[in-house]
Design a protein around this nucleic acid. Structure first.
Length: 181
DNA sequence: ACCCCGATCGTA
DNA sequence: ACGATCGGGGTT
């Protein structure tokens, strides 16, 4: 077992102030935090940052649309979209209202006896049952959809973001160095 | 109304 | 390396 399972009572929910910061900082500090969705809990192992009006890889690059509206809103809300007509991807909105940015959750290691590592944004949403219906939810106030804190200061590495053809010089993908089995 | 492309995944 | 599969966004 890689991670100790904390009880519900010990799980401190991350506040709005955690997410209302530089997206690069939030993306890196989300590593080692616990994603909670209904009965599921998992340590976040991989993230990517999408930020601002000048990031050509971001959905917000071409302006505010009904789909991307939540990215322009306050920090701490979910942004879930459908990709390739088949897969959902979960993001958490960051930075101040009006500045479109979010962190894509790309890897989660489940806190359960299986310890299953969901290594890909589509796999995470498929396994947890997250769809567009879960977009625009407030993770600061929600009691079954939020991010909890049990670990800090994970070692991490950075790489370019996956699956994009632009801004490949930006090292905005963050990978936790997991403890050995 | 139509067309093109995509923050992916599983198989080859 | 590639196909599946369909919503979003831009264009007509």
């Amino acid at each position: 077992m890689l991670f100790m399972q904390d009880s519900n009572q010990d799980m401190k929910k991350l506040k709005s102030s955690f997410f209302k910061r530089s997206t690069l900082v939030v993306a890196q500090e989300l590593l080692g935090k616990v994603l909670v969705f209904k009965n599921f809990r998992g340590v976040i192992t991989e993230t990517e940052a999408y930020m601002g009006f000048d990031d050509p890889a971001s959905h917000a690059f071409r302006g505010l649309t009904p789909r991307t509206e939540v990215m322009f809103g306050p920090a701490g809300f979910s942004y879930v979209y459908l990709i390739y007509g088949m897969y959902h991807c979960l993001n958490i909105v960051t930075e101040k209202e009006g500045f479109p940015a979010a962190v894509l959750i790309r890897g989660v290691k489940l806190l359960s006896k299986s310890g299953l590592h969901l290594d890909g944004p589509g796999k995470i949403c498929r396994h947890l049952g997250i769809t567009r219906e879960h977009s625009g939810l407030n993770l600061i106030t929600d009691n079954e959809f939020y991010v909890g804190c049990i670990k800090h200061n994970f070692e991490f590495t950075t790489t370019p973001r996956i699956g994009i053809k632009v801004a490949t010089d930006k090292l905005w993908r963050f990978l936790a160095k997991l403890p050995k089995e």
